[in-house]
Design a binder for these strands. Structure first.
Length: 627
DNA sequence: GCGTTCCGCTCG
DNA sequence: GTACGAGCGGAACGCC
């Protein structure tokens, strides 16, 4: 709820009345290959060039190249049409032959907006762009959390200029046409503008990064990730569609069976997936529960509500929970993953988003491979569909308790640091501290509660939230927290200091200097303010962890490239875990290397941690076998 | 019909 | 009225 309010606040750049007109007289349409030479010479002289590709699809793995635009000077750009349905289009091979040396020349910077996309598209055409700069990532480093980082928004905010909308060119819905059908003159205006705007933004952001001392974050944690992630996306991962088909059928049967039981009780058929209809049945027909509503005034049928009812012995809500779980697995995973298998590579290629989170974490989409099920038995089966090629294995390596370790380092928590150095069980230690008992006498329930508190701390806990989570009274939760802060006073002080700093500055910094902005931290609305405070406490912890993983990926990429045959491929990152694919005979040797490199990030030019980073590693022929 | 929001589920 | 950070699918809604 609060989150949604904040999202609304975040959108909407406001154009000032005196909007700047960008002169388009200096936008050139290239009509024959030799005209390109002029632009290459210009790029060589200035040592940098803004580049943008136009394609037939938003999916770079199946996108056809339609055109390339270049800009070497503010206000001056060209468009090279190579895949248009028009006689004016130039021969693609000739153009790429000319552009290849420029794009691969490491002494000339190639500036793009989300240039990972262009890298992938051109890689498929035999060109490997080097020396990349990215305005999207510069913007992200400068104000993660304040704005979105797409070019239209950036142009409006920083240049006070509204760009030509892509939709105005191609239309939308059924009437949408392919970019290759767009009239070349219009395509030129649009594409040249994109390159021009990108170059303008680059110049502006370059200065801001220096002024705000954010160059290191951009250079160290963003730029090296572009190529690494692009190559991971291009590599993809093998998924067994037959296995998923069988799972879908199994889920289908299970869904039908549960549905029958549900209708037996409701005595009529309805759409179980509709919270509205379900609410009617639950509250009006069956009258199982006291009426509960969501904030918007509709019936509340969330898992926590249904779980409470199920706990009281009702069968109906438990059936609904089971139905939802299985239909989620079917709709989101077993039915949908096979549709993402690339028809040429036979593998699934996710997209890793570098500028999507407020903390510096990556996100994954189309499909999201960072939320593949693991917690339920049915869910685990989905993971078994992710497999290694023949004679290969998958390796998974994950950081152990990374966020608690960061908290220990960041807040300088003596007891925690000691425990990590001695390789103790951190939740048991916490339990022994807050319940004041010997660590050997900690029972399951005490450890469970301590674990919940440790998580809560990382999330910027409230006693109310903790009480709900571990099902104790508010009073008891408060007692636990008091005991906790008494034993770990440095944590309390970290939390207070962090909020204080954020109130004053509007942002917090993680260990490596990245900022996360919380511009509503002083909001007069209690909910919004508290929400931002919790997020501000969490951001340096979650953010530092993501930075550690970035450094590990950069080190590993370098080490793997130094290997003789370079057969081991990094495939996926799931926040604190990396997945690799490697020939069987290399697995042992490479595993050692992975553990070494990941652990060694504890000591880097960027930061020396006061605690060790330990890594757990597993090998198997499918992802399901790795835990 | 099409785009956006709500609700609920998945993960770290 | 609440744990932090994400993305996706289906239903509902709102606007032609």
């Amino acid at each position: 709820m609060v989150n949604q309010i904040l999202k609304v606040l975040k959108k909407k750049p406001e154009l000032k009345n005196n909007q700047k007109q960008i002169n388009k007289n200096d936008y050139h349409l290239i009509t024959e290959p030799k005209e390109i030479d002029y632009w290459i010479k210009e790029a060589e002289e200035v040592g940098e060039v803004a580049v943008d590709t136009e394609t037939s699809s938003l999916d770079p793995h199946q996108a056809e190249l339609i055109g390339v635009s270049l800009s070497t000077k503010i206000g001056k750009a060209c468009y090279i049409p190579i895949g248009h349905n028009s006689k004016k289009s130039i021969d693609k091979d000739l153009v790429l032959e000319k552009l290849k040396p420029l794009l691969e020349d490491s002494s000339i910077k190639k500036i793009g907006q989300n240039i990972k996309f262009d890298f992938i598209v051109l890689f498929k055409h035999g060109i490997k762009i080097s020396s990349m700069e990215d305005t999207m990532l510069m913007s992200y480093v400068l104000d993660s959390g304040k704005n979105r980082h797409n070019m239209d928004t950036l142009s409006e905010i920083h240049l006070n200029h509204k760009t030509i909308a892509f939709k105005d060119l191609v239309g939308s819905g059924k009437k949408e046409i392919n970019f290759s059908e767009v009239e070349i003159e219009k395509a030129k205006d649009y594409a040249a503008e994109d390159a021009d705007i990108t170059y303008r933004l680059y110049k502006k952001f370059q200065k801001s990064l220096k002024d705000e001392k954010m160059v290191n974050v951009y250079e160290t944690f963003e730029k090296p990730m572009i190529e690494i992630l692009a190559l991971m996306e291009i590599e993809g991962i093998k998924v067994d569609p037959k296995f998923l088909k069988i799972l879908s059928l199994k889920f289908e049967k299970k869904i039908e069976k549960i549905q029958k039981e549900v209708f037996k009780i409701s005595k009529k058929e309805f759409n179980i997936a509709s919270p509205k209809q379900l609410g009617e049945i639950l509250y009006n027909d069956l009258k199982i529960a006291d009426l509960k509503k969501t904030k918007k005034g509709s019936f509340a049928t969330s898992a926590s509500v249904l779980e409470d009812l199920a706990f009281k012995g009702h069968k109906f809500p438990q059936y609904i929970l089971d139905w939802r779980q299985v239909s989620k697995l079917k709709n989101t995973y077993s039915d949908s993953l096979p549709e993402h298998i690339n028809f040429q590579t036979k593998r699934v290629h996710t997209s890793f988003l570098l500028a999507a989170t407020t903390t510096g974490r990556l996100a994954s989409s189309d499909p999201n491979l960072q939320n593949i099920p693991i917690k339920s038995e049915d869910g685990k089966n989905i993971r078994k569909a992710f497999i290694a090629e023949e004679d290969h294995v998958l390796i998974s390596a994950d950081y152990n308790q990374i966020e608690m370790r960061i908290l220990a380092d960041l807040a300088d928590v003596k007891e925690l640091k000691k425990a990590f150095k001695n390789n103790e069980d951190i939740h048991s230690l916490t339990a022994s501290q807050i319940f004041n008992i010997d660590i050997k006498k900690v029972n399951q329930d005490q450890r469970r509660k301590a674990k919940a508190i440790n998580f809560g701390i990382i999330y910027g806990i409230s006693q109310y939230g903790l009480a709900k989570q571990i099902n104790v009274s508010n009073f008891e939760a408060e007692e636990f927290l008091n005991a906790y802060f008494l034993k770990f006073p440095e944590i309390k002080s970290y939390m207070d200091q962090t909020i204080k700093f954020c109130r004053k500055s509007g942002f917090v910094r993680n260990i490596f200097g990245r900022r996360s902005h919380f511009i509503n931290i002083n909001d007069k609305n209690f909910n919004i303010r508290n929400f931002q405070e919790r997020a501000a406490i969490n951001a340096p912890i979650q953010g530092s962890a993501s930075e550690i993983m970035r450094l590990a990926m950069i080190r590993l990429d370098k080490k793997l490239n130094e290997q003789k045959n370079k057969k081991t491929k990094m495939l996926l990152q799931i926040h604190d875990e990396l997945i690799f694919e490697t020939p069987k005979e290399e697995a042992k040797r490479i595993s050692k290397l992975i553990i070494e490199e990941m652990s060694s990030v504890a000591k880097s030019e960027q930061h020396t941690f006061s605690i060790p980073l330990t890594v757990d590693l597993n090998i198997g022929d499918n992802w399901g076998a790795l835990h």
